[in-house]
Design a protein around this nucleic acid. Structure first.
Length: 254
DNA sequence: ATGCCTCAGCTCCTGAGA
């Protein structure tokens, strides 16, 4: 079984690339973020023609998440139960016996801002939701665009970006509290290239210079960790014409 | 560096992203 996550930065723009990528990488589950389209605009037929089912939670202009799956999904939940949220950022479903949560975590803009405070509230609500989900579903994968780096290894310029957004102690403490639920960072379970990032700014030739951040993560429960055989960033789509600023991350089980 | 690029929309500029 293979699972992947990819922030596509507008599914309307990136749909051909997503379909091409799925044809070359026939994963069982693909979590998408930043659809930037309303539910009625979701290209369900295009995925069906490619042999995939889909569950989605869209929103106009911003956010929006989906789970693209080979097998049917069950027990679909949109956003975090009990957490009032105008923004479409989370989708959960059971696929092939695995509880899959796909998330587009808030950006947070800057420490001290209202958006940063929202990010902290959202992260707290997420942690409690995942804590409960783990009890009911020991085989669990939490993946998506976290908008948080784990540590300096995930940052191209750790000194210059110290305590800036995605790199603050407060954000990283929240990320570690997810790990504290019994989850593992799947990428770090396996040997990786140096300077291993998942996002590069569109500006300043950042991709060519590999000035990036690793902010897209796949966290796995103990039961999934025991089945994991590989996990890596696929930088290839970032070399496409009109690429997303993020690259997919792929987890292989068995 | 209040810049760079990209996307959506009450679109020919602005807000937001990260």
């Amino acid at each position: 079984m293979k699972l992947a996550t990819w922030n596509v930065n507008s599914l309307a723009v990136r749909l051909p690339q997503v379909l091409d990528w799925l044809a070359a990488n026939p994963v069982d589950v693909l979590a998408l973020q930043e659809l930037k389209l309303t539910d009625d605009k979701f290209p369900a037929q295009a995925f069906a023609d490619a042999g995939y089912q889909a569950q989605w939670h869209g929103q106009k202009t911003y956010n929006g998440v989906a789970l693209i799956t080979r097998s049917p999904s069950a027990d679909v939940v949109k956003n975090i139960p009990g957490f009032e949220d105008e923004q479409a950022r989370l989708i959960t479903a059971t696929v092939d016996g695995v509880r899959v949560i796909g998330g587009y975590f808030p950006n947070g803009q800057a420490p001290g801002s209202d958006k940063f405070a929202y990010k902290m509230r959202w992260l707290e609500a997420l942690r409690e939701w995942v804590r409960n989900e783990l009890i009911a579903h020991p085989a669990l994968v939490l993946m998506g665009d976290y908008n948080i780096t784990f540590d300096d290894l995930d940052v191209w310029d750790p000194q210059g970006l110290r305590e800036t957004i995605h790199c603050t102690t407060e954000e990283r403490t929240h990320l570690q509290s997810l790990i504290g639920l019994g989850l593992s960072d799947a990428v770090r379970l396996f040997p990786q290239p140096e300077k291993n990032y998942s996002w590069w700014d569109y500006r300043d030739l950042a991709f060519r210079r590999n000035r990036g951040l690793r902010i897209d993560h796949i966290l796995v429960s103990e039961a999934i960790k025991a089945r994991a055989s590989a996990c890596a960033v696929d930088k290839l789509p970032r070399k496409n014409e009109r690429p997303s600023d993020h690259a997919p991350v792929v987890l292989t089980l068995g």
